[in-house]
Structure formats: C-alpha cells, structure tokens
C-alpha cells in the first residue's frame, strides 16, 4: 500500500506579515515558516494507517522553493519513507489548478493507493488543490475528513467527513482515492532523535515541473490589511490591567450587561 501526502510550507501562524513591494503577496524573506497545520495531520493519519496495516510506504510530496526542504525533512524524521520535491520558486504566483497539475504530473506514475492532503493551506487558502488533483488523476475524493476507519482498509476505505454544525457522515470509497484531512484528526507525533538520524538516509527526489500557463487562472492583483468593519475602542493603551478596569466601566455604561 502506498500513501502520498501533500505538504506545504507556509508562513508561521503567529508571524507578523509585511506586504511585499509589488503588493501582490507578503514579503517572505524574514518570515518564519512552518508546515501547514492540516498537512501535518494528513501525514500523521497516513503514518497511523500504515502502522495499522502493518505494511506500506508513505511518500511526502511538497511543491515549493528549496526552503520547503525543511518541511520535507521534518516529515521524513516523523516517519515518512521518502519524498518528492516539486521545486518551484514563487509558488504563490501559481493558481490552484497549476499547482494541482504540476503535482499530478509528478506523482501520476507512483500509482498510489491513497493521496492525503490538508484541507486547505493557511496562506492562500484556496482549499481546492486536492480536489482538482483528484479530478486530474481520475480518482474520487473526500474533503474535510475527520476520522479514518483504519480497520476497514482493503479495496475500499471508510472515512468520516465533517459536515457543518456538528454533523458528520461516513462514506466508503473505492481505492485509489484522495482525502483532504481536517486538523485535529489525531494527536501529531514529534520526531524522535532516531527518526531524525534515519531521515538523513531517506530519498528526496527533486522534480522540476513544466509549469504550463492556465487560461482560467485567478490572479491576485493586490493584497492589503483588511478594511475594518467596526470602530474598535482600544482600551488600556498597552497596559492590560488598566484595559481591564476600563472595560468593566464600558460593560457597565455602554454595553449594560453588569
């Protein structure tokens, strides 16, 4: 059994973002990077499924610049068996279809039984790379998967999808299939020292994609700080305790909940 896990390097959640000189993306040079949150969960679920099955291979695939090697090496240290790096600088300029096409070309011949991805990236948040990829590979997909019935794995796999407002639904899929994984599906493991050492010997294959122009591509023309929809009264002027005292006064006189 072979599982390919798509992982993306994105700006750290807590990073302060500065808009780039062309105003079309952030200035990435001095921003701390991390593995996209839901992609980390996708890897964890792939590793657990392989362990439950007792055999198989987990292959990480990342599209991005050389800096994405950090994400790949971390995944290998956590237990992935090998990696495919689709090397693309300025990946933020690619549309979701272009990204999915480049990944499809890179992994098609792997003939994986399962492809896992995070449900969306925390940077561009297109939330569709996985679905487009499934269509390009000619395989079915399920999005926002919150549980995998690992014992059911055979020619088919039973997965639980999250619907809205606390509703869920199980689906059974014929393999091969692609799943996009929701954050929180299971507790993510840390890389062990042994894992880190072992990762050094694991294969990372660089692939140079031929990125094709895509007529239907959406294009970011301008990024900017969100326009405020509300007048916010900032309290305390940086002093949290003073802010709390002021807030109580507001809750009394303006909001009138006390």
């Amino acid at each position: 059994m072979k599982i390919i896990v798509l992982m993306k390097q994105v700006a750290n959640k807590d990073a302060v973002l500065r808009i780039g000189p062309d105003e079309k993306w952030i200035n990435e040079t001095d921003v701390a990077q991390q593995t996209n949150e839901s992609d980390g969960y996708a890897l964890e679920e792939a590793l657990r499924l392989k362990e439950a099955k007792g055999e198989g291979e987990v292959v990480v695939c990342s599209l991005g610049s050389q800096s994405a090697k950090t994400v790949i090496k971390d995944a290998l240290a956590r237990g992935a068996d090998r990696a495919i790096h689709v090397v693309a600088d300025d990946a933020n300029k690619l549309s979701p279809y272009q990204i999915a096409k480049a990944i499809a070309d890179a992994i098609r011949d792997e003939n994986a039984d399962l492809v896992f991805a995070g449900l969306q990236s925390d940077d561009a948040s297109y939330g569709q790379t996985g679905v487009i990829l499934a269509e390009l590979l000619g395989i079915p997909h399920a999005t926002i998967v919150i549980e995998v019935d690992r014992g059911s794995l055979g020619d088919t796999l039973r997965v639980k999808r999250e619907l809205e407002s606390g509703w869920y639904q199980w689906f059974t899929y014929k393999l091969p299939t692609l799943l996009t994984i929701q954050s929180g599906i299971s507790q993510i493991r840390y890389a062990s020292l042994k894992g880190i050492m072992a990762a050094k010997k694991k294969e990372i294959r660089d692939v140079t994609p031929s990125i094709e122009a895509f007529a239907g591509a959406q294009t970011i023309q301008k990024v900017y700080m969100p326009l405020k929809t509300k007048q916010t009264q900032m309290l305390g002027n940086g002093d949290a305790k003073a802010g709390a005292v002021e807030l109580v006064e507001k809750l009394k006189t303006e909001v009138r909940v006390i």
């Binding site: 969100p226 509300k230 916010t232 900032m234 305390g236 305790k241 802010g243 709390a244 909001v255 006390i258």
Partner: peptide, 26 residues
C-alpha cells in the same frame, strides 16, 4: 480586533484576573 467593539492589546493573564475582580466589585 477587526470585528471587536472593544479591544485590549496585552497579556490575557494580566487582564482577565483584574477583569474578574472588577466585575465582582461592580
């Protein structure tokens, strides 16, 4: 903060105990 009516920029571990005390007093 974009959707907040009132905002406090600071450590919640400083603000919240004071807030709780002041509300009890009020």
């Amino acid at each position: 903060f974009d959707i907040a009516d009132y905002g406090i920029v600071g450590d919640l571990f400083e603000a919240v105990p004071v807030l709780t005390e002041e509300i009890k007093k009020a």
